[in-house]
Computed example of a mutant assay.
Amino acid sequence: MRPFLLASALGLLTLTATAQRASINRKTVFTDVDGRVLSKDEYKAKLRTGQFKVYNPQAEGKSFVSLSLQPADTPDAVRLKALTPLRAFNTAAPSFTATDLQGRTLTLETLRGKVVVLNFWFVNCPYCLEEMPNLKRVVTSYQPQDSVVFLSFALDKPERLKKFLEQRGDFGFAVVPEAKSFAQQFAIAGYPTTIVLNKQGQYIYDQEYTDNTVRLEEAIRRGLQP
């Protein structure tokens, strides 16, 4: 079964092994930093501010019993800490050659001199889909200039992706199908994950679930600096 982490969904960096396999249901209780019970939408809205992160996830079997909040890391902390040492900031990303659904071939070498935003996702990942409108807004803000390249790696087959994109509409990223090998190459553990590479092809941003795009946009601006 494809890995799908609540960490991906809610921006949490670490969960217990049990919690990583769990999911939200109608019985899940959401609480604020002071213990006040929240609705699911209120909980997610607070996460989207970037001021909070998931705290103390309690799971039974494959379901979350409760999820709380605690203050999020500061932007400086996020800026300095990758999700895994394999993607340590200011180190070089692995070289790749990928062909997207339009038949275009992209390599990291030919993208030198541009900021590259990479998104890893799959069709049956609801939180991948949930973040797409905000990701498209970011893409749109950099068009028509070509100083930033938006490239996504999807696990699904080309036919399924084309049908999905025809029905839902694209989210601005070029889409590489059947990208499991690229996900392994980049040591992706949770979906969706978004990475930003600077003009030298080095990691400068690494987060799961980017429905709050404030820090993503800040990373892109940093990457564009001379």
Rank of each mutant, 00 (worst) to 15 (best):
R2H: 04
F4P: 00
A7H: 01
A9P: 00
L10F: 11
L10Q: 03
L12Q: 13
L13P: 03
L13G: 10
L13V: 06
T16A: 06
T16M: 02
Q20N: 10
S23W: 01
S23I: 10
I24V: 15
I24P: 02
V29F: 02
V29H: 04
V29P: 06
F30D: 09
D32M: 02
V33L: 07
L38T: 09
L38F: 04
Y43T: 09
K44M: 14
K44T: 11
L47N: 12
G50F: 09
Q51W: 02
F52E: 11
V54D: 11
Y55L: 06
Y55E: 12
N56R: 15
A59F: 12
A59S: 15
E60M: 09
G61A: 15
S63M: 13
V65F: 13
S66V: 13
S68K: 11
S68R: 14
L69C: 12
T74H: 09
P75Q: 13
P75R: 11
A77G: 04
V78K: 14
L80E: 14
K81T: 15
A82P: 15
T84C: 08
T84G: 13
T84M: 12
L86M: 12
A88H: 05
A88V: 07
N90V: 04
A92E: 12
A92G: 01
A93M: 07
S95V: 14
S95I: 11
T97Y: 00
T97G: 00
D100F: 02
L101T: 03
Q102K: 08
Q102N: 11
Q102H: 05
T105Q: 08
T107C: 03
E109L: 09
E109A: 15
L111C: 09
G113H: 03
G113C: 06
G113D: 05
K114R: 14
L118S: 06
N119W: 00
F122R: 10
Y127S: 13
Y127F: 12
L129P: 01
M132C: 02
R137S: 08
R137M: 06
R137P: 01
T140Y: 00
T140C: 00
Y142E: 03
Y142W: 01
Y142V: 05
Q145W: 00
V148M: 05
S152Q: 02
D156N: 13
R160G: 08
K162W: 00
K162L: 07
E166A: 14
Q167W: 00
R168Q: 10
D170G: 15
A174R: 14
V176I: 15
P177A: 14
P177N: 12
A179K: 09
A179C: 12
K180S: 14
K180W: 11
Q185V: 01
F186W: 11
A189L: 12
P192Q: 09
P192R: 10
V196N: 12
L197W: 09
K199A: 07
G201C: 07
Q202F: 01
Q202M: 03
I204V: 14
I204D: 07
D206A: 06
E208W: 03
Y209D: 10
D211S: 11
N212F: 08
R215E: 14
L216V: 07
I220Y: 04
I220R: 03
R222E: 13
G223S: 10
Q225G: 05
P226E: 10
